[in-house]
Design a protein around this nucleic acid. Sequence first.
DNA 1: CGCGAAATGTGATTAAAATAACATTGTCAT
DNA 2: ATGACAATGTTATTTTAATCACATTTCGCG
Lengths: 240, 240
Amino acid sequence: MNDRSAVRLTRLQQALAEGGSLRLAEAASLCGVSAMTIRRDLAGADGELVLIGGHLMRADDPRHVPAYDLAVQRDRHAEAKRRLCERALATLEAGDTLFIDCGTTLMPLALSLPEDMSLTVVTYALNVAEAVSARPGVRLWLLGGIYHGSSRSFASDDMAETIRGFGLNKAFLSAAGVHPRQGLSCFHFHEVAPKQAAIATAQRRLLVVDASKQGLVRPARFAGLDDIDEVITEAAPQRP
Amino acid sequence: MNDRSAVRLTRLQQALAEGGSLRLAEAASLCGVSAMTIRRDLAGADGELVLIGGHLMRADDPRHVPAYDLAVQRDRHAEAKRRLCERALATLEAGDTLFIDCGTTLMPLALSLPEDMSLTVVTYALNVAEAVSARPGVRLWLLGGIYHGSSRSFASDDMAETIRGFGLNKAFLSAAGVHPRQGLSCFHFHEVAPKQAAIATAQRRLLVVDASKQGLVRPARFAGLDDIDEVITEAAPQRP
DNA sequence: CGCGAAATGTGATTAAAATAACATTGTCAT
DNA sequence: ATGACAATGTTATTTTAATCACATTTCGCG
């Protein structure tokens, strides 16, 4: 890759930095070269930009990781989570103040919150916040702190205290492990405090887990099964 | 649109809810129908899903608002901001703790932070947080609170106090208006407290504004020009 | 200036996707 | 059963995008 090519690439990358897509021809005229040159630039680049059906866009955001052969597995999970979250949605009432836990399990819930119900969502997860921020009708309170990429969530010393300051109607909790005796656990210790605070504060505590978490124990225990009011899950996997 | 068609569409929509794209053929086999049927489903749908070059993806994604005829104007802005942020980047030093203000001006900065410099970023803007969260080498502290969609940022009562608790080396500030006598202003009052706290706390205060903001006064004044140590801007527009 | 190498443009060719047309299957009411 | 209609599949056609081969331009350098 040569110098001018690199200049064009960074230029395009910046043009697309804030999102959006560019038609190949537009990208070309933007750089004052032909479409063929843009193609060649792209071919010699590191793959941060991607050309798909004549549209140029960034490859690095979550959008584009193609489902490929993961498709089946991904979908089994997504399908299960979707069904669980549908049931979670059904429990919502106008005026609710919800706590939504981190992880991917509750994403379908965050994505399909009704906008005509005057809801308030409290969360410490960046992905949940992104999803909820796209729903203009829903009030969103994000609990800030230091970011943990592993769970896409934030942690801070006074988070538990802040949570206790809310009048939470319902807490939707996720867990990476559910065990009859060991209770509920997750991978990361920084999730424990907010989870426990939400459990302590909310009127109604709903655990949403798919069947694959049943019987597992993870490093960080945050509650017992009896701290939960309702478990939204599939039937446990049958053992013949 | 018929029932089964609607079922397939919601199914696909949920499969894509967390991002990613599906090849048309994959989507088809996922639903157990032919590609043509998926096409027909899409044609009769409301346009939430979009098929582009054989890839199926959500349309509500910022990636797809095409730059179209806005391209030129968008780029003029993005181009200017990119250049300004390049100069802002040059001021960074290893170990810095940065405050990054909300708005779109500082996005190119957030997107191209070096990962090998041990940086910490403090921000109250969701879009900045998203951008920084994609850089594993950079520590991120998000100041939480109630979300304001207008500026994609958060506000809370104790935010100013929290900011004063950081050892900020540099504060990168944006403004919607810069006036010789009226000083610096922005559109939204909830931005005033964090901006002022950052100005009060940071060792070095850098204002990043493009020329289009010069001479303007916006509703919420947050500082005077002399509260800023350095202004990163283009030459003011010439009047012939 | 003029040569050579690299970069880019142009038009032809191939591959792929979108559309359209028609065939088949399934469903329901009579 | 069977005819009508909707839904879907299959194949052909048109349109669009990607690739290739070669012509042209640009740039550095003796």
